[in-house]
């Protein structure tokens, strides 16, 4: 589904990603962990081309993306993204947030887009909030709307950039619940998170990054119970 070869990225003189190789299979749920500054968010953002890599190749759906010729907007339609700070459009209602891109990017009929949006809202448990503005929702509700908004484009992969980090602790569960449901349905997902319990339960593979390198990757049970790398051990001691 996604193949990354020798990906590198620098901000000025600071190299945040160093020759990353990573393959993500269809329906796989991959969790990226690592301390802040390890490059995990940058890696995720490169997959959506919100950051342009300085070197290497990204192949999505057997199409090489790093060339200038590829239409990034088309690629982004296939790759949904959920942000730490939700980034809902404040001037639009929940429903309008969700139907915006299907109508204006995918050229779907409005009635069709609304029907689909209502189904998605049902799925994330917010059917009754369709006509609310983002400001009237709790953080957890906002994030569930953001997930529905991304799903409305019918992406093949979903990227989650610390989706619960900005939430009050009691609201984390409802968002993770929606994500678990998605994983169960077979969505391909790449998730940056600090929720180790969630990673253990849902991930097919956990990847540990440090200083821009992938230093360890394994099945969550294996990685959490028996970390090989010294830095992984230290990191897990700090967060668990």
């Amino acid at each position: 589904m996604i193949e990354i070869r020798q990906l590198s990225k620098s901000f000025g003189s600071l190299q945040v990603l160093k020759n990353i190789d990573l393959t993500i299979k269809q329906q796989e749920v991959v969790v990226l962990i690592g301390s802040s500054g390890s490059g995990k968010s940058t890696l995720l953002r490169c997959l959506n081309f919100l950051e342009t890599a300085n070197g290497g190749e990204i192949i999505i759906d057997s199409e090489l993306i790093n060339s200038d010729k590829t239409n990034l907007n088309k690629v982004r339609e296939k790759v949904g993204m959920v942000f730490q700070h939700f980034n809902l459009f404040p001037h639009k209602t929940v429903l309008e947030n969700i139907i915006e891109a299907p109508i204006y990017v995918k050229r779907e009929k409005k009635e069709h887009a609304i029907l689909k949006a209502q189904k998605l809202l049902q799925k994330v448990g917010l059917r009754d909030k369709a006509n609310f503005y983002p400001e009237q929702l709790s953080g957890g509700q906002k994030q569930r709307v953001a997930i529905a908004r991304a799903l409305a484009m019918e992406p093949q992969v979903m990227l989650f950039d610390e989706p619960t980090s900005a939430l009050d602790p009691e609201l984390v569960g409802e968002v993770l619940q929606v994500m678990k449901e998605l994983a169960r349905e077979g969505m391909t997902m790449v998730i940056v998170t600090h929720e180790m319990g969630f990673a253990k339960e849902v991930a097919d593979r956990v990847i540990m990054l440090a200083d821009g390198y992938i230093i360890e990757e394994n099945h969550p049970n294996e990685l959490f119970s028996n970390p090989q790398h010294e830095r992984t051990q230290r990191f897990l001691n700090q967060v668990l």
Partner: peptide
């Protein structure tokens, strides 16, 4: 984040500017 969200949904920059 507003522009990033719009772009991540596949909106071209001009459309994102106009609509969002």
């Amino acid at each position: 984040g507003q522009l990033e969200a719009a772009r991540s949904l596949g909106m071209p920059k001009s459309l994102a500017m106009r609509r969002i």
